[in-house]
């Protein structure tokens, strides 16, 4: 079947089998391997992208369902060489370790901050509930999103925790 959609602001058209998942379409047809696959039960969220502005697990959507849709993947976040504040936050606050869940986590954070510019820690935690991370214990992911939220509101982000780390010699 033929599908046409906009991916990262570019129009694409391709012929796909109905059974092709959106995530496979992005990774295999378009070479956008930043969107990852971590499970097959729509649980881990590594494959999260924005479909028409809403966070979506691209492993639980057929490519044919996305016909006509606007897709934004992690590769499309930075513009004109400028990192998105969420990407910047993940870097500044050590919000990633192995990096595998990171693209999906970042996209979920982008989706969250679109809807809630000033989330509490609890709201951040609920906002990324659909994304599993095995490395960070989520601690610094929360800090990264707090950083991004402040930045996007035009405020100074809270200082990093290591500035007041207590070390007993």
């Amino acid at each position: 079947m033929q599908v046409s959609m906009t991916v990262n602001r570019r129009a694409v058209t391709a012929d796909v089998e109905p059974r092709m998942l959106l995530v496979h379409f992005l990774r295999e047809e378009l070479g956008l391997t930043g969107t990852h696959i971590g499970c097959e039960t729509s649980y881990c969220g590594a494959c999260t992208v924005l479909v028409d502005g809403r966070t979506t697990k691209s492993c639980t959507m057929l490519a044919v369902q996305a016909d006509g849709a606007e897709i934004l993947t992690v590769e499309g976040l930075a513009q004109d060489g400028q990192l998105h504040p969420v990407q910047e936050g993940f870097w500044e606050r050590h919000g990633l370790q192995c990096g595998y869940c990171t693209p999906g986590m970042i996209m979920s954070a982008v989706g969250l901050l679109q809807e809630n510019a000033n989330p509490t820690e609890d709201e951040i935690r609920h906002g990324i509930e659909g994304n599993l991370c095995r490395c960070t214990g989520y601690h610094n992911i929360v800090r990264a999103i707090e950083y991004a939220a402040a930045k996007m509101r035009g405020e100074e982000p809270p200082p990093p925790e290591w500035e007041h780390e207590e070390v007993i010699a």
Partner: peptide, 9 residues
């Protein structure tokens, strides 16, 4: 129900 992404779709 589910999580944010699931509730979105």
């Amino acid at each position: 129900t589910g999580d944010v992404q699931v509730r979105n779709r």
